[in-house]
Structures are given as C-alpha cells and as structure tokens.
Amino acid sequence: MYIKKILLAIAVIGLIVAAFFANFVYKAMLKPNTAFNNESAYIFIPSSANYQEVRVQLESLLEDIESFDDLAEQKKYINNVKAGRFEIRKGMTNNDIINSIRSKNLPIKLSFNNQETLEKLAGRVARQIEADSLSLLEAMKDKSFLSDNNFNGATALGMYIPNSYEFFWNTSAQTFRSRMLKEYKRFWNASRLEKAKALGLSPNEVIALASIVHEESKQASEQPRIAGVYLNRIRIGMPLQADPTLKFAAYQLPKYKNTVIKRVLNVHKEIDSPYNTYKNQGLPPGLIAMPDISAINAVLNYEKHKYLYFAADAKRFGFHKFAKSLSQHNVNAREYQRYLSAQGINK
C-alpha cells in the first residue's frame, strides 16, 4: 500500500513536470509571439551588437519578451548574435524568430546616382548600409587602393557606376569598395574597352567626358549628339569650351561656395583651373560629377556628324540647338542669352 502511494506521488509529480515542460515548450517554441499588425517587421543588428541590444529592438515587436529570453538562452543565441537585416513575420513563434535572426540575413537594394562628389556618395551609401560615411569616405580616398587600381583623387568617383546593387546591410566600407571595383570591371567589358580604344580614350577619360555630357543634358536621346560635338572638337584640336567645367572650377573657389551659377559669364572663363576647358585644351583631369550610364554609353556610341557647337534651346527646355558654323552658333546662343535676360537670370 505504501509503495502504491509512492508510485502514485511519483506519477503525479511526473505529470506536473510534464505539464510544466509542455507549457514551457508551447510558450517558448510553439505559441505565436508577435505584437505587430503588419505582415512583416524588420530589425537591423549591427556588427558589434550584443543580445541586450537585440532585445531592445525586439521588445516592442513581441508579446512576451521573457519567453523569448528563455528560448534564446536555451538555443545559445544570447552569446551568438549575428549581424544583419532580418525579417520577423506576423505570427512567428520564438523558435521561428530565433532561426530567422540567426541565419537568414536578408540583402537590401542599394542604389545611387548623380552624386557630385565622393563625400556626397559616401553620405548616400551610409544611409543604406551599416558602414558610416566617414569610414566609407576614408576607404574611397585611400591612396594606395586608388594607385593600385589606376585611379587618383580626380578620377576616384568614376569607379562607382550608378545603379542598384544587392548588398547585405552589415557591409563594411572596405567590402563596399571592393564590390564596386568588381562592378566597375564588369561594366568595362571587352566591348566597351574596344570602343574606348577606338576613340583613343581610357575608361577614366571616357567617364570624364561622359560627366560633361551628362551635365550638359539629361536627355538620353540627345547625349550621343553632344558627345559627338566634343569628340569633333578633340579631333581638330579645338578646346572643349564646356560650360559645366567652368562651374565645377568656380565651385572649388571660396567665392562661389554655397552659390548656384545659373548663367556662365566671361568672368568664369578667366578662372585659373585645369578644369577650365576654355583655357586648357583636351579633357579635364577627371570627372566633374557622376554621369549616368546613358552618358557613358553616349560617349562610346557617339553620333557621327559635323556639328562643332550647341546652345540651349530657349523654346524646348532641356534640349539644344546644334550648329556646324560659329556664325550659326552665335545666332542660337544670342537667342538663349536673350531668354535668360528676360527671365532675370544674370549670374
């Protein structure tokens, strides 16, 4: 009789323990534990983060953070935090969530275009990945890296081909830079290199010219014609006389900081700068802004014609009038100058 009571007590205790364990398993592993209404939420875990930092992000997303703590400890996640961007879907259990944030780092779409300087590019990229703008800029300007890959301070921006790319959010500055070099080399395939060689230009020179073409016109349909004008000038030894290079040269001077030049004047043509293509023959030392791929391709696939001049078209905003002779160009230019004056644009 006494043994039966002992066995019964053991059975009862066993049932209690089993019930407790079953409840723990249910709450910790099988019960949905999300507290948001959207289909998904995302957390971004920095490379240096510890569990407490992850917990802070999760606290507002989960109904029961303590049960998550218990399972995280059981599954040894607490001491094995992974960096990245992770998705938590509505209705996930603690087990699902831990599996997701431990092994399912999701990529992001990183994009950039038309950045005028490395500083602006670094700021743009830093808003999309973990690396901060200072570390990105330091990597972009690293002299050893630039020299090893045939770039310098004037041409460095040309290594970054504007587009959308897939990256992990926790990408470092050096990893970003290395990936962009690979994309640059992929962009300059055999076909593009052959076309550049036929022009007598290096990839850096093509991009420098493309940056001028892009600043002259954002109209992809017109860019090959503008490129043809500049290439015609190069062939006959005529200075490029590109107004965007004068603006670039001016903006390097303290006098023009925080200003917007809407009208190029004769005073700008006197600026002493290697980027003054009125004073200096040939291409400038580097690009003046990041050109779109359309402008790069416009140079490589330029329109063959006999035009040597072009002026903005006062009647078709964003487009230009082209001329073969200086006399016709002067007519077109005066028409546009009158338009600027009528608009009160004097500088």
Rank of each mutant, 00 (worst) to 15 (best):
K4I: 13
G14V: 10
I16S: 04
V17E: 04
A18H: 12
F21K: 12
K27Q: 14
A28E: 10
A41S: 12
S48P: 00
V54E: 02
V54H: 02
V56T: 14
L58M: 11
D64K: 13
L71H: 02
K76G: 09
I78Q: 13
N79E: 11
K82Q: 14
F86V: 03
I88S: 06
N95G: 11
N99A: 10
R102L: 12
S103E: 13
N105W: 08
P107I: 11
K109I: 14
N114K: 15
Q115F: 10
L121E: 11
R124A: 15
A126Q: 11
Q128T: 11
I129K: 06
L136R: 10
L136N: 08
A139W: 03
A139L: 05
L146I: 04
S147P: 01
N149K: 04
N150V: 01
N152S: 00
A156R: 03
P162S: 07
E166D: 12
F168T: 04
T171E: 03
S172W: 05
A173D: 02
T175G: 15
T175Q: 15
S178I: 02
L181M: 04
I207C: 02
L209C: 09
V213H: 00
S217H: 05
Q219W: 02
S221P: 00
E222P: 05
A227Y: 02
G228N: 01
G228L: 02
R233Q: 01
I234L: 15
I236V: 15
L240W: 03
L240P: 06
D243K: 00
P244L: 05
P244C: 02
L246E: 00
K255V: 10
Y256P: 08
Y256I: 07
N266E: 12
N266Y: 14
S273L: 07
N276A: 06
Q281E: 13
L283A: 00
L287K: 09
A295D: 10
I296K: 05
V299F: 08
K304Y: 09
F310Q: 07
F310N: 08
A312R: 06
F319E: 11
F322V: 03
F322L: 04
S325N: 07
L326M: 03
H329P: 01
Y336L: 00
Y336I: 01
R338W: 08
S341A: 09
A342N: 14
G344M: 00
I345F: 07
I345W: 09
N346M: 10
